[in-house]
Structures are given as structure tokens and as C-alpha cells.
């Protein structure tokens, strides 16, 4: 047999082995504090070391994930997407897939409850919130209004607020009794919500309806649903983060980060990235991901200047944090 044939068979055999082996990604150091971005456009997950502010690696998962949750064990990384039948579990320390949960298509959001024992999956297809334990077993489910998208919960873990994307009604779920409470009417095309427990206020953003784009955040009384005020943060405010006495808001329509006092006064604003959809608060810095610019910015909360920008995969849509215990 000629050498060329030997080489061919060797290559074919190698291909066969790799094809049968589960995908293996670069492991993430268990001690590192990380920010993971779920990138929609190129279907990757990027990992950034928060302390060194450097990117660690990209996982080319090649699945249309839209969000993720890191479990309290700091190792299990759950990824979900509305077009996927399963939610997939990866081990960060080994870089391998370790499990799959049959959750069905339509999962648009996932939230780890404050009890750290359950995850709420928002399903826009069947319009239910599915409560699943950390083994993947569904414990209960709650019906919502049509097209649920954003969920947020109270700090004591007693209540959950569900915003419907195309429906002007906000659903409230009592997590202790596991029952649906009376909701209240809100503005249309709401997206992004922040519950300020100490003020009993629910801050809600949005994209706006049709050609009318949303310029304000609406502040509702978390109990009565009364619209207390609107704050102009043009345009299209969609995500919130709280640090000290300020609320930080990203408005993706104008690529702007706003700093707003909890009392409602707009303190500062800066153009950050391109088309930012998501913001997260670290200990003393903010993280903003630019969907079009495909980067993550480390922002000084005082003057809103970017201390550092890190390039990530294309189309970062959500940031998931794993910080020190």
C-alpha cells in the first residue's frame, strides 16, 4: 500500500473518531470570575475573565442559544434557545456537554429563583412559566398572558412578575403559594423590567409599538400597578442594572447608557457600543454588551466611561455572570 493510501486511511480514521466523540470545548478555570456572553449571530459563547478583563475563549456551540444560567454549583452552565427542543447542560470545568433537558421549543427566558433550587422557564409557545428543579424535573407550571418574555422576581423570592411582549397585561405569580395573582395593565411592547423592592416599584422598559418607538421607562407601583411616572431615556430602553443608589439603563435604539437616580432623576448618559441589549452590574463596574459591535464594555459607574472593551463573538445578546461566592 502506498504512503498516500496510509495517510488517507489515517485521516479517515481520525475523522471517524472525532465524529463519534462529543464536542469538547476549552475548560474554564473553576476559580475564575467570569462573564459569559451568548452570541446569537455566530452561535458562540464567549467567556471573559472579569478580573483580568480579558477574553478567555469562545465556545463554538453552533446552536441557536439565546440565554443561559450558571447553577449555584458554579460549574453547570445551562443554555437554552426558543428554536431548540432541549436545554443543554455543560460543565465549565471540563468543557463538555453533561446533560440535556427536554423542555420543548419556545423557551425565551430562564431565571434562577432566589431559593437557588428552581429555574423558571418562560415558554412563549404554550404561554406557561415552567418551574424546573436543578435535576431538570418540572415541579409546577403557571399560565401567563400571551407571549411572555421578560421575568423578574422580588428579592425575598416571594413574587414573580411576567411581562408579555405583545400583550398589555403584566402577570404576577405568588411563588410561595404557587398561584397567579391579579395582574395589571401596562404599556405595549414592554421589555426589560427591574423590581426595586425597597421602593415597591417596577421599572419597565420597551421597544415601542410599530413605527412609534419607546422613549421612556414606565414606573409602576409593584402592588397596585399604578403608573407612577415616566422617565425619558430615549430610545428603546430594554435592560436595567442597579448599583448603590443608581439605576443603569441601556437604550438600544440610541446606543445609550443612562444613569438614573432611584428617585427618577436622569444623572448622566453616554453612547456605548452599538445596539446594546444587555447590562450587568459587577462589584464596582458595569458590563454592557453591544449586539452590533460584538463587544463587551467595562464601564465606570461614576462617569459612565468605558475602562476597557473586549471583543466577543458576533451578536452578544445576554451576559451571564459567575462571581466570587
Amino acid at each position: 500500500m502506498s504512503n498516500l493510501y496510509k495517510l488517507f486511511y489515517l485521516l479517515a480514521f481520525t475523522g471517524f473518531l472525532t465524529a463519534c466523540h462529543p464536542e469538547h470545548y476549552q475548560p474554564i478555570d473553576s476559580d475564575a470570575n467570569i462573564a459569559a456572553t451568548i452570541n446569537i449571530k455566530d452561535m458562540t459563547v464567549s467567556f471573559i475573565d472579569i478580573d483580568s478583563r480579558e477574553k478567555i475563549t469562545d465556545w463554538a456551540v453552533h446552536k441557536p442559544y439565546t440565554g443561559g444560567i450558571i447553577f449555584p454549583d458554579r460549574d453547570t452552565f445551562l443554555l437554552y434557545g426558543s428554536q431548540l427542543e432541549t436545554a443543554d447542560l455543560y460543565s465549565l470545568s471540563t468543557g463538555e456537554i453533561i446533560g440535556q433537558w427536554e423542555v420543548g421549543e419556545g423557551i425565551v427566558n430562564g431565571l434562577l429563583l432566589e431559593n437557588k433550587k428552581e429555574i423558571a422557564f418562560v415558554n412563549e409557545n404554550d404561554n406557561y412559566i415552567h418551574f424546573v428543579d436543578l435535576k431538570g424535573k418540572e415541579s409546577s407550571k403557571m399560565t401567563t398572558e400571551k407571549d411572555p418574555f421578560t421575568v423578574t422576581q422580588s428579592a425575598d423570592g416571594s413574587k414573580m412578575y411576567v411581562l408579555s411582549f405583545n400583550h398589555e397585561v403584566l402577570s404576577v405569580i405568588d411563588l410561595q403559594q404557587m398561584q397567579r395573582l391579579d395582574g395589571f395593565k401596562i404599556h405595549s411592547f414592554a421589555a426589560g423590567a427591574l423590581l426595586l423592592d425597597d421602593q415597591n416599584e417596577l421599572w419597565v422598559g420597551g421597544h415601542g409599538e410599530g413605527i412609534d418607538i419607546e422613549r421612556n421607562i414606565h414606573i409602576y407601583d409593584a402592588t397596585t400597578g399604578e403608573l407612577k411616572k415616566k422617565i425619558a431615556v430615549p430610545t428603546m430602553p430594554v435592560d436595567f442594572a442597579v448599583m448603590d443608589d443608581s439605576v443603569y439603563i441601556v437604550s438600544h435604539g440610541s446606543n445609550t447608557l443612562y444613569k438614573v437616580a432611584k428617585e427618577g432623576e436622569v444623572l448622566d448618559s453616554k453612547i456605548i457600543g452599538a445596539n446594546p441589549f444587555t447590562i450587568k452590574a459587577l462589584d464596582n463596574e458595569l458590563l454592557v454588551a453591544g449586539y452590533d459591535s460584538s463587544d463587551v464594555h467595562f464601564i465606570n459607574p461614576d462617569d459612565l466611561r468605558a475602562n476597557k472593551s473586549v471583543k466577543v463573538g458576533s451578536g452578544p445578546f445576554q451576559i451571564v455572570l459567575r462571581e466570587k461566592k
Binding site: T66, N166, H207, G210, I211, T235, M236, H252, F277, Y291
Partner: peptide, 26 residues
């Protein structure tokens, strides 16, 4: 310059027929 017309909300299902679609925006 309306971001809606420019498909800036593309990952969200806006039920709106923008001037350009997500692919064109890219």
C-alpha cells in the same frame, strides 16, 4: 434613523415589517 425601521430589535419578534430585515442590517 428610526431603529425599528432599521431592524435594530431584530432578535425580538416585533411583528413589524421593517424597511430592512435582519440580514440586510448585517
Amino acid at each position: 434613523n428610526n431603529p425599528r425601521e432599521l431592524s435594530a430589535c431584530f432578535p425580538f419578534e416585533m411583528n413589524y415589517d421593517s424597511l430592512i430585515n435582519g440580514k440586510e442590517r448585517e
